[in-house]
Design a protein around this nucleic acid. Structure first.
Length: 498
DNA sequence: AAAAAAC
């Protein structure tokens, strides 16, 4: 069997890999590392979860030991589609490069230039970037890339989706033609193939099977629901509470506003929950993700920014609050669970309007997904007026609430539940308020990015044992950081009270 | 019906 020691990596790299507890390379690593070390171009077709990141980080570290840096010139450049992915790759560089004296600069948007500038002035060997911020640095004249020997284009298909290809082309022009290029994509549609042909010279092509794309270890279910948001939130809460084995979960919404709304609702209902979407300020994004990874938050409500690539080990559940519009996104979302052979569960809330998306998903994954409690046809009909009066089926609710009062699941333990009727009332008020108070909804997130992470004022609650109090904020005049568990960084508390 | 990314 192939081991890391057989791949030609340097001793420094090998010892860091061994210290991390790895002995056997994954297929993409075994396939890509030797030709990468031989300075070949690489066309890697692999999804996240296949060990793709190490397949370029490890050979890059080895190659960086050879040759010497020219003064203050970066020698390698990695392009990532999202800030979180870039940060994650940087962590990998630190982990596997701990025996190297390398300067790694993470150049991403949403944070100040100052620290990035300082790193560049000290001289960075490795740049890990999102395209916009990199170009910004170049245009400010602070950064010369003529010394770059290795270029990594990661998640190329996603870069294409996001319209980054013109940026990538511009960046490529700033780098010597003699460079080595490592190009990775989860899929290979014709446009990506054309792009690869333009960027790569005689590449070694390594294709690995998607990690059993909708892994057999993942239990998938559709859950029929009416389409009103408050209905869906109630169904979701019951669903979460019914999971005995829920360790942590990502809940996907299609839209950023819905991420904000659902986050606020779950928070108000006492769940341990964070939120992640692209209109939140970067500090919140980073902190939310870190706290979720460290299990300080049980639930993470997220947009598709979290669907791909983020390495959050051991997520036990994925909930799709909305059916994704593109079937591939379904695959990526549920790929957040059941990783590395572990078991996982994925529940997707489906209402009548989602019919054609459901069909597309089943067609793409080539399997039928079972319905949890009967399909849409079995859903009790509700008159419009009755729906408004009684958001949920009373009989059903009573039955589950008895279960709930026994306190199931981790999130349950965090907050003693008020009486059920109170919750339902509060929920309705919540929705009405949310709709009236436009300022808490990211209608124009570009103008007010923090709105997305900004909870509405909540009613006073005298129960000091209620852990929700920790998350309570005064009002609009200053966001108190949410979702930090017990560890709100001091600087953020100060900022919140200012 | 969306999201992502520079200021």
């Amino acid at each position: 069997m192939t081991t890391f020691a057989d791949l030609g990596l340097s001793q420094k790299v090998l010892s860091a890999v061994t210290d991390s507890g790895y002995t056997t390379p994954t297929p993409i690593q075994a396939g890509a590392i030797p030709p990468a070390l031989a300075r070949r171009d690489i066309l890697g077709i692999a999804q996240t979860g296949t060990g793709k990141t190490a397949s370029f980080v490890l050979p890059m570290l080895t190659l960086l030991e050879k040759g010497r840096a020219r003064a203050r010139m970066p020698r390698t450049l990695i392009l990532e589609p999202t800030r979180e992915l870039a940060a994650q790759v940087a962590e990998n560089f630190e982990k596997y490069g701990k025996n190297h004296k390398l300067n790694v600069a993470l150049l991403i948007g949403g944070v100040s230039f100052d620290e990035q500038d300082r790193k560049l002035e000290r001289g960075a060997d490795v740049l890990i970037c999102t395209p916009g911020r990199l170009l910004d640095h170049c245009e400010r004249g602070k950064l010369l890339m003529t010394g770059v020997e290795i270029l990594v284009i990661d998640e190329a298909d996603r870069m294409l989706d996001m319209g980054f290809i013109p940026d990538i082309e511009r960046i490529a022009k700033l780098i010597p033609f003699t460079r080595q290029t490592l190009f990775f994509s989860a899929t290979m549609p014709p446009e990506i193939q054309k792009l690869a042909d333009r960027f790569l010279q005689n590449p070694e092509r390594i294709e690995v099977a998607p990690p059993s794309s909708t892994a057999k270890t993942v239990t998938q279910r559709f859950v029929a629901t009416h389409s009103k948001d408050y209905e869906k939130r109630a169904v979701l809460r019951d669903l979460i509470r019914a999971q005995d084995d829920l360790k942590n979960a990502i809940i996907f919404c299609n839209r950023k506003v819905d991420v904000a709304d659902l986050f606020r609702s779950l928070d108000r209902h006492g769940f341990s929950v964070g939120a992640l979407h692209g209109d939140m300020d970067q500090r919140s994004r980073t902190t939310m993700l870190a706290n979720f990874k460290e299990n300080k938050l049980t639930l993470l409500v997220a947009s598709d920014v979290a669907a791909r690539g983020l390495d959050i080990p051991d997520v036990s559940h994925v909930f799709n609050f909305d059916v994704p519009i593109h079937a591939e996104d379904y695959v990526h979302r549920i790929g957040r669970t059941g990783r590395a052979g572990r078991s996982g569960a994925a529940f997707t809330l489906v209402s009548k309007r989602d019919g054609k998306f459901v069909d597309a998903i089943e067609k793409l994954i080539d399997q039928k997904i079972e319905w949890l409690n009967g399909s849409l046809e079995d859903l009790p009909q509700q008159a419009e007026s009755e729906e408004r009066e009684r958001p949920r089926n009373g009989r059903d609710r009573g039955g589950r609430d008895r279960d709930r009062s026994r306190g199931r699941g981790k999130s349950e333990a965090r907050a003693p539940e008020p009486r059920v009727e109170a919750i339902e009332t509060e929920e309705k008020v919540d929705v009405v308020k949310a709709e009236r108070k436009a300022d808490v909804r990211p209608q124009n997130p570009a103008r007010n990015p923090r709105a997305a992470n900004h909870a509405a004022p909540r009613p006073a609650n005298d129960d000091s044992r209620d852990r929700r109090n920790r998350y309570r904020r005064d009002d609009d005049d200053g966001p108190t950081p949410l979702g930090f568990g017990d560890d709100v960084p001091a600087f953020m508390l100060i900022a919140g009270k200012a």
